[in-house]
Design a protein around this nucleic acid. Structure first.
Length: 417
DNA sequence: TCTGGGGTCCTAGGACCC
DNA sequence: TCTGGGGTCCTAGGACCC
């Protein structure tokens, strides 16, 4: 029998912002951007939630619901930093820790009783240590499986601890709404409501075969989750060993941008696309990965969204390849009668080696690769805007240079092609 | 109210191969 | 030409999570 903790930080982004600006404490705070911008709420303080503000809500809506709220930009570096501190605290309690995202983790506490006492006691110690070491509140769910521990921490919020004793899982789950099951979102919830199922207990009382008939494979998985088991599912995995378990390589890398105003301007769209492609290329090189498939994403004013993919003969990690292929996809698929709201580029189908075409093209690709690694280092040093591919963002590039001449290294280290 | 950005996983049809 | 069947790759779209 296992003992699993699910540790979930309370209003994580807001709490981190409060550390940097204590005057925010206790006030309605919205993290995500300005109140009149396009965008959605990343996190809301509990004071703001009282007005009905919640994450994923449009910023403008949040402003209408709570005009006195303080709107702040998000700071991903700060959250990564604090996520690392959270991880360090958790490792004091068990070597088996898996960060499931920036603000939540599973901790396998099986066999720690002799050292740390019974689960509830160690959970209290964890809770206190977390506050002392990071200044942040968390909630802890305790159960014999990840799935139930996760649902328990959700019920424990804010700033609480909830233990589901072995054997009572079904009783704990039965009265909860189906939406509390991880993986059940808006659509599944609606489909379940349509057949009269509102609570997890309703779901558990249905025959598995019935659910399978209605929802296929997903229905079968749901039947299990309703009983607190997740055989073969995401929650069913072993905890990675901290000593051996380095982070898994990503399966895809993407960047996208929503324009502040929808645009019909090809030059602006292309410049943005080039910029996004450079960011993708840079991250590919950071990971030492080469992508075989490039995918373009377009969203029009009416929110209709298309994706168009192309698989390359040889994998690449080079900006010009990404720029060129995504540009081709754009021109082949953009319906110019419609203004563009969002443009994005997505790389996948990773290999660790470069493709054969690159190996035999006379060293040209290798020179490009080396040059790009050099510009990556310059960007590390002088900032993202210091160096840019000639094809994109000319205007913006000049602006930045004028703003901050010190940010520009003597010469743009761009190879001629 | 007008709807971000970064991911993962799944489905489903068609091409192609044996 | 009465037309199986499995496996794999590619593409498009969508649900869901934080």
């Amino acid at each position: 029998m296992k003992t699993i903790f699910h540790v979930d930080m309370d209003a994580f982004f807001v709490s981190v912002e409060e550390i940097f600006d204590p005057s925010l404490k206790g006030k309605p705070v919205v993290v995500g951007g300005k109140s009149d911008e396009r965008g959605v709420v990343s996190a809301a303080s509990y004071a703001a939630r009282k007005f009905g503000v919640h994450s994923a809500m449009p910023l403008r809506t949040a402003h209408k619901l709570c005009p006195q709220a303080i709107f702040v930009e998000g700071h991903p570096e700060r959250y990564r930093d604090y996520s690392g501190r959270v991880y360090a605290v958790l490792q004091h309690f068990s070597p088996l820790v898996e960060m499931a995202s920036v603000d939540e983790a599973y901790v396998d506490m099986t066999g720690t009783e002799r050292l740390l006492g019974p689960p509830l006691r160690s959970a209290h110690a964890l809770h206190e240590t977390m506050k002392a070491e990071t200044g942040l509140n968390c909630s802890v769910g305790i159960a014999t499986s990840r799935l139930v521990a996760k649902i328990a921490s959700d019920q424990a919020k804010p700033n609480g601890i909830l233990s589901v004793m072995p054997g009572v899982e079904a009783n704990f789950l039965a009265p909860l709404e189906v939406r509390r099951i991880p993986g059940v979102g808006k659509v599944t919830e609606k489909n379940l409501h349509a057949i009269g199922i509102r609570r997890i207990g309703d779901l558990a009382s249905l025959a598995e075969s019935d659910l399978e008939a209605r929802f296929g494979k997903w229905g079968l998985a749901l039947a299990g989750k309703a009983r607190g088991v997740d055989a073969g599912g995401w929650f069913d995995r072993e905890m990675p060993d901290a000593a051996s378990g380095e982070r898994a390589e990503p399966k895809s890398i993407s960047h996208e941008h929503t324009f502040n105003r929808d645009t019909p301007d090809a030059a602006q769209i292309e410049a943005t696309l080039a910029h996004l492609a450079e960011k993708v290329g840079r991250r590919l090189r950071e990971h030492g990965l080469h992508a075989r498939t490039v995918q373009l994403k377009l969203r029009y004013s009416d929110f209709t969204t298309i994706t168009r993919a192309h698989s390359l003969p040889a994998p690449t990690q080079i900006d010009i390849d990404l720029v060129e292929h995504s540009r081709r996809l754009l021109h082949a698929n953009w319906d110019r009668r419609q203004a563009v709201r969002l443009i994005g580029i997505h790389a996948s189908g990773f290999t660790e080696e470069q493709g054969q075409m690159n190996l035999i093209d006379d060293g040209r690709s290798e020179r490009w690769r080396q040059a790009l690694l050099a510009t990556d280092r310059l960007r590390d040093k002088y900032g993202e805007s210091a160096v840019s591919l000639g094809s994109g963002l000319r205007g913006k590039y000049k602006e930045r240079v004028q703003e901050n001449p010190a940010a520009l290294p003597g010469k743009e280290p761009r190879p001629r092609s």
